[in-house]
Design a protein around this nucleic acid. Structure first.
Length: 299
DNA sequence: TGCCAGGCGGATT
DNA sequence: AATCCGCATGGC
C-alpha cells in the first residue's frame, strides 16, 4: 500500500464531493456507501474509490479530501492519476471569468465552487453514458457497479476484493440477456454492440478532430446520439466546450435562454455554447446541471 | 397510479 | 430534415 498527499494550495478551490457526485462520472464509489445521499461542499472527508489502469494492470485508487489537501491510498502512485482524472490543473477562476454573469450561472458557481470537471478513461465513459439514456443518476451509477462486479477483473486491495471496470473485450464476451439481467433494459444491446466495435479495434478517442466533427464521429457507436457523444467529449476527451443537451439543460434553455432554442440539436448546441462563453461552455453547463438538479432549493 | 429519468434507433413522411 | 414511436426499469 502506498499513501500520499496532494496539497491543493496550488490548485485553488477544489471540492471532491461535488466533483465525483455530480453525475459527470459513474466510475467512483463512496467507501461508506452513501453516494448521492447528501449534497453540498466538502463532503465530510468521505473516502472515494475508483480503479485505474497502469500499463494495462488495474489498480484501486482511494482518495479523500481533508481541508486543503487530498489524501490517497493505492497499490500504485496515485498522484498523476488523480491529477488527470480530477483535472486538478484546471484554472477555475479563468473558467468562471469566461462564463456569462447570468443569475443562474453565478448561483451555480457560488453553490458548488471548487467542483472540477472529470476526465474519465474513454471506454468506461462511453459505456457508462450509453447506460445513461432515460435513467436517473443513482441508477446509472448502480449499473456501472453491477457491470464491474459481473465482468471486471478482481483486484485485491486492503483486505478485500474490488473489481476493475470491465474492458471492451470483457463486455464483448457477454450476452444481451445477461446484460438485461443486470437491469440495463433496452440499453443492453447498445452496450454489447459498442463493446464489440471497440474490441474489434474501433477506438473512440477522437484525437485532434474539431469539436463538431468529433461529436458526429462518436455517434457511429451504437447507443450514442448527440447527447451521449457530448458527455463523452466533455467528461473524457477534454472538449470543454461541449454542452450535453439533456432534459435538465433543455428546461434551463426554455427558462433562461429561450433564444437559444433553435429546434434541432446542432443549432441549439451552437447557440447555448456561445451563450455560455464558448471555450469552457461545458464547465458552466456542468455547474448549472448540478445546481438545478440537486442544489437550487436545498443549498 | 402515471410520470419521469443526463435518449436512441428505426420507420415514416 | 423533421417527426413519431417503442423501448426497460425503478422511484416517487
Amino acid at each position: 500500500m502506498e499513501r500520499g498527499v496532494l496539497p491543493l494550495s496550488s490548485v485553488g478551490a477544489f471540492d471532491l464531493q461535488s466533483t465525483v457526485e455530480s453525475g459527470q462520472s459513474y466510475l467512483w464509489s463512496r467507501a461508506d456507501g452513501r453516494m448521492y445521499e447528501s449534497t453540498g461542499p466538502y463532503g465530510g472527508d468521505a473516502w472515494y474509490e475508483t480503479t485505474a489502469r497502469v500499463e494495462g494492470e488495474p489498480a484501486v485508487v482511494r482518495v479523500r479530501q481533508v481541508g486543503d489537501r487530498l489524501e490517497w491510498e493505492s497499490s500504485v502512485d496515485a498522484g498523476p492519476i488523480l491529477r488527470e482524472r480530477l483535472r486538478l490543473a484546471d484554472d477555475l477562476p479563468a473558467i468562471r471569468a469566461a462564463a456569462p454573469g447570468d443569475d443562474v450561472v453565478e448561483s451555480a458557481f457560488d453553490a458548488y465552487w471548487g467542483m472540477h470537471l472529470v476526465r474519465d478513461p474513454p471506454v468506461p465513459s462511453l459505456i457508462s453514458f450509453i447506460c445513461s439514456a432515460q435513467m436517473r443518476v443513482a441508477r446509472i451509477h448502480g449499473m456501472q457497479e453491477a457491470l464491474r462486479e459481473a465482468y471486471g477483473t478482481p483486484v485485491e486491495f486492503d483486505g478485500r476484493t474490488c473489481h476493475a471496470y470491465p474492458t471492451a473485450d470483457q463486455l464483448a464476451a457477454t450476452t444481451e440477456d445477461a446484460l438485461r439481467d443486470l437491469g440495463l433494459g433496452y440499453r443492453a444491446p447498445y452496450v454489447l454492440e459498442t463493446a464489440r466495435m471497440v474490441a474489434d479495434g474501433d477506438d473512440p478517442v477522437t484525437g485532434d478532430l474539431p469539436y463538431e466533427e468529433a461529436r458526429e464521429a462518436l455517434t457511429r457507436f451504437v447507443g450514442v446520439g448527440d447527447k451521449v457523444a457530448d458527455c463523452v467529449l466533455l467528461f473524457s476527451l477534454g472538449y470543454l466546450e461541449a454542452v450535453p443537451l439533456d432534459t435538465w439543460i433543455r428546461t434551463t434553455i426554455e427558462e433562461y435562454y429561450p433564444d437559444c432554442d433553435r429546434g434541432n440539436y446542432a443549432d441549439t448546441s451552437r447557440a447555448i455554447r456561445t451563450a455560455l462563453g464558448g471555450e469552457y461552455a461545458g464547465y458552466a453547463q456542468t455547474y448549472v446541471f448540478h445546481y438545478l438538479r440537486t442544489g437550487e432549493t436545498t443549498e
